[in-house]
């Protein structure tokens, strides 16, 4: 099961639980007036509910924060550095630094399989997104391309194949067609 499927299952489970609770609560309100006995000690129950919710949130925080993408593979030397300059509606990718005055990219980029690589992503005009999709059209990882800044995205590709890059920040009318690809082998 990949990350996306896991997220969807968690969400659908929450969706069903919440709907069920609301439906049962609604059902319980259809009783005759004289039988309205409500909840006993609601304040105390609310207190326990809040405590339980806090504990769940703290656990979730401590589990998920260390998995943040910023420092992935930060202790390793990348086998390859790829420079990316995004521009309406192209991605220039090159293993050499790209001259912003006359940007151009390599015809094809080949990434070694199973080794850490680094993308140095920036933009020459507006904000763009740099979303890496695998051959099954699943989003693998991403960063933003912001003018004036370089974002360094490190990743290790374990599956060979063609990967597509899609722009993931709305950048103008031709945004859906802004794409490129590279090969992992």
């Amino acid at each position: 099961m990949n990350d996306h499927q896991f997220i969807l299952i968690i969400f659908l489970a929450a969706f069903i639980i919440i709907t069920a609770v609301f439906f049962l609560t609604y059902r319980s309100s259809l009783r005759p007036e004289e039988k309205s006995d409500g909840i006993k000690k609601p304040l105390q129950k609310r207190f326990y509910f809040l405590i339980a919710l806090t504990i769940v949130l703290v656990i979730l925080l401590s589990v998920t924060i260390p998995k943040s993408p910023y420092f992935k593979y930060s202790d390793q030397t990348p086998a390859k550095v790829v420079f990316v300059d995004a521009m309406q509606y192209y991605f220039f990718m090159s293993e050499q630094a790209i001259d912003p005055a006359k940007p151009s990219g390599a015809d094809s980029i080949i990434i070694p399989v199973g080794q850490p690589v680094e993308f140095r992503v920036t933009s020459l005009d507006v904000n763009h997104g740099f979303g890496i999709y695998n051959s099954d059209a699943q989003l693998v990882t991403q960063t933003q391309a912001m003018p004036g800044y370089v974002n360094r995205l490190r990743w290790k590709f374990d599956t060979p194949g063609t990967y597509h890059i899609l722009c993931l920040e709305y950048c103008g009318a031709n945004h859906p067609n802004m794409r490129t690809s590279f090969i992992v082998k």
Partner: peptide, 11 residues
């Protein structure tokens, strides 16, 4: 929670 208390087992 307040809404839940308001509705649950009340007519």
């Amino acid at each position: 929670f307040s809404v839940f208390v308001l509705v649950f087992r009340n007519h």
